[in-house]
Structure formats: C-alpha cells, structure tokens
C-alpha cells in the first residue's frame, strides 16, 4: 500500500495505539503498513476457514469472532473476540500449521494483510515489534487459560458475570452513571453462550436474573452495567467459593 492510499494515514494512526505496535516508532510502523494490502470484510461475510494460511490480518476497524464448530452437534464456541489492533491468526503466524476456525465479521471491517512469511520476518527484523508481540501473545494465552479455567472451576452465572466484567469500561457515563460494555454489548444470548461455553437457554435465564437484581440493564438496545460493585462481588464471591 503506497502513501497515497486513502487507508495509509489512518492505518498508521490506528496502529499507533495498538498494543502490538507499542514502542514501534512511526517510521518503522508506516514502513510496515506500506508493505501491507488493504482489505475490507463485510458484516456477516462468509470467510474461508483456511483464510489465515497465507496471510496475516491486522484489524484496523470493526470486530470479529473466531469460532470453532463441532460438526457432529453443530454446537459452537467463540474463542476470541478480535477488534482494532488485533491480529488474525496468531496460531498460523507462530507455527504455520493448518488451523481450521470460522472467522465471522461482526461488523464491516477494515484490515491490512501481509503474507504470513513476511509477517514472520517482521518479528526477526524489527526488535521493537518483537518486544510488543510477546506481551500480546501472552495476553492471548492468558485469555485462553482464563477461559479453560473458568469452564472447569466456575458455574455459568460466574462465567457470564466474568465475561461482562471483562468487557466493562472503568469510567461510568457522566449523565446516568452506567458503565459502558464494549464489544459484547449488542450480542444475542446465543452469542454470549458461545463465549462462555454454555447454551442460549441458560444464558437467557442468567441475564434475566442479573437484570432483576439491577446489576445490568439494556440502554438504547445495548447492554450496560448499572451496578459495577455488585457485578464484581458476583464474580469474587462465586470464584472464591468455587476454587
């Protein structure tokens, strides 16, 4: 992508705030961007499960979920919710092996793509990028650890409370004092269930309970947290009790 491309400046700017590019100076970052191709994915677009075999994708705008589906039962689990600054797919970037997953764009997305072979060279070629890449990888591993730990140790109520808490912003809305929830605030109960390894009916019941207890509520059709303290207590109490 050359400097005249409409995406170029935006991409350089967006990636400045991405943890993956933390500490990478502007010149290096922009030169990395210039090596990439700009691509767009439409919301709900069907993508090939092996899309990550040849390219690494860097998300500039929008969000996507990375899902595994059991062909026998049709049940699915969403392992990652990726948004601006995230990459897809870390697994193939690391080992180059086939990794069949179902990436689903949850909004219109703008991305950069770079041949995976070249992306691996980046890690060796740019020490600052390498420095930032390791903590990013660590964060993803922790996320997976937390997910599997939660599946074993926690009940659905706690898992759901943890999921909401994980995506809740720290600063309340000035007017009404509600805490915004990012990324998962407009998801269906079925989708939330995929993220905590449960089923829709259970999540619907638990969401209703959290609403009745005035911990969460729906604002303009989207999920917000009304009582953060109670939500945190809900996570703490249950976690301590179960581990």
């Amino acid at each position: 992508m050359n400097e005249q491309n409409a995406y170029y400046e935006d991409a350089c700017q967006i990636l400045e705030h991405a943890s993956l590019f933390k500490g990478v100076d502007r010149d290096t970052r922009c030169s990395m961007v210039s090596e990439c191709q700009a691509v767009t994915w439409k919301k709900a677009e069907t993508l090939n499960p092996d899309i990550s075999m040849t390219y690494l994708y860097i998300i500039l705008e929008g969000k996507m979920k990375v899902t595994q589906v059991d062909p026998e039962s049709g049940r699915s689990v969403s392992l990652f919710l990726l948004s601006s600054g995230d990459i897809f797919d870390t697994f193939t970037l690391l080992d180059g092996k086939e990794h069949i997953v179902f990436p689903i764009p949850m909004s219109n997305m703008k991305l950069l793509r770079i041949p995976i072979v070249r992306a691996r060279e980046w890690i060796r070629e740019f020490p600052k990028f390498n420095e930032a890449f390791l903590p990013y990888l660590g964060e993803q591993l922790r996320q997976l650890e937390s997910f599997s730990q939660s599946l074993v140790f926690h009940d659905t109520t706690t898992r759901l409370a943890n999921l909401i808490l994980h995506h809740t912003g720290q600063h309340p809305d000035e007017q009404e004092g509600h805490y915004p929830v990012r990324l998962i605030n407009n998801l269906s109960h079925e989708s939330l269930a995929e993220l905590i390894g449960s089923v829709r009916s259970v999540v619907s019941t638990q969401m209703q309970k959290l609403k009745e207890e005035e911990i969460i509520l729906s604002k303009r059709g989207k999920l917000v947290v009304k009582d953060l303290k109670k939500l945190m207590q809900r996570c703490d109490v249950f976690c301590k009790g179960k581990i």
Binding site: S188, S191, K222
Partner: peptide
C-alpha cells in the same frame, strides 16, 4: 453474526 435483536430493532 450473533447480534441481539434488541439492538437492531432499537
């Protein structure tokens, strides 16, 4: 994509 009907309708 698994978006809630509530947010779409709103």
């Amino acid at each position: 994509v698994g978006e809630s009907i509530e947010s779409v309708v709103y």
